[in-house]
Design a binder for these strands. Sequence first.
DNA 1: TACCTGCAAATCGTATACGATCTGTAGCAG
DNA 2: CTGCTACAGATCGTATACGATTTGCAGGTA
Lengths: 224, 224
Amino acid sequence: MQPTGLSKADQAHQHVLKGITTGHYQPGDRLVLSTIADELGMSVVPVREAIRRLQTDNLVQFERNVGATVTGIDPVEYRHTMETLALTEGYSTAQCAPLVTQETLEKARGINEQMRALVAHDFAPEKFTELNEQFHSALFEHHQNPHILDLVHRGWNRLAALRSSTFSFVPSRAISSVAEHEELLKLIADGAEFSIIESAARNHRLNTLHAYLDHHAKSTTIDF
Amino acid sequence: MQPTGLSKADQAHQHVLKGITTGHYQPGDRLVLSTIADELGMSVVPVREAIRRLQTDNLVQFERNVGATVTGIDPVEYRHTMETLALTEGYSTAQCAPLVTQETLEKARGINEQMRALVAHDFAPEKFTELNEQFHSALFEHHQNPHILDLVHRGWNRLAALRSSTFSFVPSRAISSVAEHEELLKLIADGAEFSIIESAARNHRLNTLHAYLDHHAKSTTIDF
DNA sequence: TACCTGCAAATCGTATACGATCTGTAGCAG
DNA sequence: CTGCTACAGATCGTATACGATTTGCAGGTA
């Protein structure tokens, strides 16, 4: 075999992570160690390690002597995740702004135009969310602080796992989102100062969150 | 035995974490699974899990088929850690500000006075750092978002592990620090708005970082 | 019917055993 | 003396086996 193929624990990690993000494992599903081990043709030990890694990312809940379940779409959890992402991504975007090249700027504009077209014609929440991630990735991906970059990635992973794309529930938010993207790009292109860009990027995400919360408040009586 | 004592993996985790924060394990030390397992009278499996957990917190570095070492005092890592903590703690402090009770405020003032006394009389960096953590904990501990609170805690853990208390290298920073604490308390007591408190708390930590960087730049020729 | 008791199945937690990989060193060739 | 090779020790990676805990259900009792 290859001298440095991934360790089995890594394989298991990727497998389960993919299963969660693609929706093969639905929130609430149980993740039985032995079952997954059989599927991958390995013993339970590496699988166990993979599950625990996912646990620290809050992608699965783990109860001792009972087992692991995929973390559910708890509205409270959604709020916490979005808030954390607003914080980290906002900072990250602001700090990367001076480093954004003309080329990257163009790329981001292109993605945003695709999003605009999608909104106008046949809106598909999943595709929109995917483009949305690409758009933001382009703006923060070159962050110099690996810790913060890692936090941003974890946030996106968690959102993907929740599959609770706000745009599914609140399509109208997509329009504002595209407009805010354009504004953000303008700020970056103009070389706006750090705090301006940070709060723009942060509020952009918080606005999406609030759109969801407003929508949710109308469809349930439970206040959270 | 107790029906639900900690699992051995948890015991191992706590043991090694404590070893790192207390300095029993120094940065750069190797953490050999079998050795630790013997010390704790358990097999290597739980120890392995504990080490990997510490790895995701960036407290140890792990190389496949080689082993784990305690993360060293890399100035670059220190900067990244402090920057991340500035971000998360600043936000956390700002969001908790409206919830801070009169009682908590008094407690924080008391701690800060102890710090002031320490600076005036026999300055001890370790004690000062400990009080510093207590001071800030009081202000953010009731944060509603567990994700962010967790990030703050991880930051502090990492700092404790690095043991690279800025105040050891730059004692003069301690004086400014106490003054900034007082300012921060005043802002909270006066009910200053969110962004004011956030940037005050963030900059307070960044100032400590910069004090360290300036000091370090003078004592080495390596620019980073 | 409602509730308690006890057993059995499922599942996780850990120990032990063995194979895989890396690192350092001793020995040999040039 | 220098550089390469081969071997031995150390350490991790994983499989297998067994014990511990939880859960659910069946059966009995009030």
